[in-house]
């Protein structure tokens, strides 16, 4: 499927939506379908400072576990608490209700290191 056009993407299959200085981060539809049924999401604590592409959490499916990397640096301002009781939201709505956390963006220039929807589409086409 086509990638939502209003987002930027990382090579680790995270997406980010930037609204002025707030970034919302999630994993892509491709990532959730490769992982399978997600059973647990470990997110950073609100107030944590995170650096671009650093490990900020873990996503567990029944038989796999993968690290979560933040696509941008900043301070975590909010995490998606709905995932605690319903991690399957990430499977059902990866680009909407299944978002993971929000950041106060530190350096908007970092978005230059991210992929456009088209480039990300190419990346996953290659992977398949």
């Amino acid at each position: 499927m086509a990638q939502p056009p209003d987002l930027l993407y990382s090579r680790e299959h995270e997406w980010v939506r930037i609204d002025s200085d707030t970034a919302t981060i999630g994993i892509t539809d491709y990532a959730q379908s490769s992982l399978g049924d997600i059973v647990y999401v470990e997110l950073p604590k609100v107030g944590t400072q995170v650096a671009q592409f650093s490990n900020t959490g873990v996503i567990e499916s029944v038989k796999a576990v993968s690290d979560l990397y933040t696509p941008l640096s900043g301070e975590v301002t909010e995490v998606n608490e709905a995932l605690e009781n319903d991690p399957a939201l990430v499977n059902r709505e990866p680009f909407a209700g299944g978002w993971l956390f929000k950041l106060q963006v530190k350096d908007s220039k970092q978005s230059e290191n991210l992929l456009s929807p088209d480039s990300y589409e190419e990346l996953i086409a290659e992977a398949q």
């Binding site: 647990y40 567990e60 499916s61 029944v62 038989k63 796999a64 576990v65 690290d67």
Partner: peptide, 13 residues
Amino acid sequence: TLQAREQHIRRER
């Protein structure tokens, strides 16, 4: 269950 905590999946983590 909750095998994703365990060594055979999580390895060094």
